[in-house]
């Protein structure tokens, strides 16, 4: 059996009286796309924030590459090879697409106490940045200020920035959120290209995309994993069906 790159053990987080993450355990294996699905409010984004270090956990452990990273802040986790994208686009709107990604490259190229040299001519930063833009299909948009890119392009830029940090693990929080059918299709093919070279933890509502991409699926309900398995196992799982049907029945 392959070694798990990311291991989550009994993770817990509550906001006031609400348990957002309830005794959650899961393992993401190297090279796989591991999808986490679940109804709205299941605690998926909370989980991503806990894994990336933006939210501290009440209890439980996060093991990455065999190391306990539970107490580390986001920059330190990024350094160890965890990159995340945000459900609500989080980029540098005033910068060009290339500058957005170059800054991510810079974050992993030593310290930035360099005060004198003009940064825009540094091929060390712009070359890998351009390559990352190419991977997500934004090569031709490099010099456009991010504010002027479309929503779909913002989502692609998010991925490019994450890739530029040369991560071992990508945490993707609904990369297809708000996308049209065509853009979704493009994002699926981008993620397919990343598969194999990258380990990915994917949160997504688009079930077609999830079942097309995932090697393994975990179903989250009320912060707890109710089922975990291959796409076929999940499709056949009775409990999962009830969870989803139940949600539809009480939707408000």
């Amino acid at each position: 059996m392959t070694e798990a790159l990311l291991k989550v053990e009994n993770l817990r987080k509550s906001f006031g009286g609400v348990l957002a993450t309830d005794n959650l355990s899961l393992a993401v294996e190297t090279g796989q796309i591991h999808a986490v699905i679940g109804p709205n409010g299941a605690g998926k984004t909370t989980m991503i924030a806990q894994l990336a270090g933006a939210l501290s956990s009440d209890s439980g452990r996060v093991l990455f590459d065999g190391e306990d990273i539970s107490a580390l802040a986001p920059p330190a986790r990024s350094r160890r090879g965890i990159a995340r994208t945000f459900q609500i686009t989080s980029i540098f709107y005033e910068f060009t697409a290339l500058e957005n990604v170059a800054l991510a490259v810079q974050a992993h190229d030593g310290h930035s106490f360099r005060f004198w040299r003009e940064v825009r001519n540094e091929g060390r930063l712009t070359d890998p940045a351009q390559a990352a833009l190419e991977t997500v299909g934004l090569a031709g948009r490099a010099n456009i200020v991010a504010r002027n890119l479309s929503h779909g392009e913002h989502r692609q830029l998010e991925i490019a920035m994450a890739l530029a940090t040369k991560p071992k693990l990508l945490l993707l929080d609904e990369p297809m959120a708000g996308m049209g059918a065509e853009e979704t299709q493009e994002m699926v093919s981008i993620l397919k290209r990343l598969k194999g070279d990258h380990t990915i933890l994917l949160i997504e509502h688009d079930m077609d995309a999830v079942f097309a991409l995932a090697d393994k699926i975990t179903v989250l309900v009320y912060g707890n994993s109710i089922a975990s398995g291959t796409p076929d196992e999940i499709r056949a799982n009775e409990e999962v069906r009830t969870a989803y049907l139940g949600e539809e029945g009480t939707a408000n």
Partner: peptide, 11 residues
């Protein structure tokens, strides 16, 4: 511009 993003990419 975006401090949370800066932290997330490793700064």
């Amino acid at each position: 511009s975006n401090e949370a993003r800066m932290q997330a990419i490793g700064f």
